[in-house]
């Protein structure tokens, strides 16, 4: 009786494993590994052909250059497909190629969207081709401003957080200040900062350090406060002094939390960077965007936005790479 039941229970599952038609799965595999990778290049050729052959609705710059760029990307994608380097990204590349083709047709050929707020792909390309020097310069200025403020802010944040977590005296004197200043949006201090500091640059750096320092402080503190006291006992019985306990026990134990703080702080400093560049500092991507908007040069603004987005996501990627290296010991961690 029970034997028959078991057979019945196992029967269908086993049949499913061995006799189920393998064709659908094989078809999916073929689609994923052959059809889609080889379709990515042609999608971009379609975009290139539409750009090149369909006449523009207005006098746009760089139409042929754009067609050539699309074609070049198409060739690169075909090469990637031939080298079997393109299965995971193939659907994205197809969508991107077709999306750009749609934009090109909708705006450059048919003028469906109101100008000047919506440019054409060739407008955007033109900005990169003609104004790359100023864009690059703005990027470097932004990175410089960010690097100083963020580094100072997060270093001070980690130090303050460790102090709050380890010393009662430090907590007594510093915590009220942290509670008073930290939750304040740093933007609120902007008018004051531009008056108080001798230069706009210094004011912006101070505000960016404040913006990134607060989350780093709080998360470092919570990380250090949560360290298992037994970890300290182990090191102390082996003769460890305070320096070792802070640098080699508290900091590594709190590092998962500290990285969350560094991540949040980086986001805060991006926000502060753009605000500072739009309001006080006369350089950088934020200033470029402000300027472009003033001249109604919307393609320039989109270009600056693209560069800024690449910068922010690049910096966050770097932060996560560092984190993955340093926190490889964790059982599980999220991947950026």
């Amino acid at each position: 009786m029970s034997g028959a039941e078991t057979t019945q229970a196992i029967g269908p599952a086993e049949a499913g494993r061995t006799h189920a038609p393998a064709t659908p799965r094989r078809a999916t595999r073929a689609l994923r590994h052959i059809v889609l990778p080889w379709a990515a290049g042609p999608a971009w050729f379609v975009a290139s052909l539409l750009t090149w052959r369909v006449p523009d609705a207005d006098d746009f710059p760089d139409t042929n250059e754009l067609a050539a760029l699309f074609a070049g990307i198409g060739v690169a994608l075909l090469a990637a497909a031939a080298l079997r380097r393109l299965s995971a990204r193939a659907p994205w590349m197809i969508a991107l190629g077709l999306g750009l083709a749609t934009w090109e047709v909708a705006q450059a050929k048919l003028l469906l969207l109101p100008r000047p707020f919506f440019g054409t792909p060739q407008d955007l390309l033109d900005v990169f081709l003609t104004d790359w020097k100023r864009l690059g310069d703005s990027l470097l200025h932004s990175l410089g401003l960010l690097a100083v403020g963020y580094t100072v802010g997060s270093t001070l944040g980690i130090a303050t957080g460790v102090g709050l977590g380890r010393s009662r005296h430090f907590r007594y004197w510093v915590l009220p200040v942290v509670r008073l200043v930290g939750p304040l949006p740093p933007v609120a201090l902007l008018p004051l900062a531009f008056v108080l500091f001798p230069s706009n640059w210094l004011a912006s750096e101070a505000l960016m350090a404040l913006a990134s320092g607060f989350p780093v402080t709080i998360l470092t503190w919570s990380g250090v406060a949560a360290v298992d006291p037994a970890y300290y006992d182990v090191a102390r019985t082996m003769g460890a002094r305070n320096r070792f306990l802070v640098l080699r026990v508290a900091l590594p134990a709190a590092s998962p939390q500290i990285f969350v703080g560094l991540f949040m702080g980086l986001g805060m400093s991006f926000a502060m960077l753009v605000i500072a560049e739009m309001l006080g500092v006369k350089s950088g991507l934020g200033f470029y965007m402000q300027w472009a908007q003033g001249w109604a040069a919307y393609p320039d603004m989109y270009a600056a936005l693209l560069v800024m987005s690449a910068m922010c996501t690049g910096l966050i990627t770097i932060l996560f790479r560092v984190r993955d290296r340093l926190l490889g010991w964790q059982k599980d961690g999220l991947k950026w």
């Binding site: 003769g239 926190l327 964790q330």
Partner: peptide, 20 residues
């Protein structure tokens, strides 16, 4: 105070998870 000639072993291994 604690000293390296008197080593304590606790109920939990208390290995540092960030060290091999």
């Amino acid at each position: 105070g604690p000293g390296p000639d008197r080593i304590v072993m606790f109920q939990d291994p208390t290995l540092y998870p960030w060290r091999t």
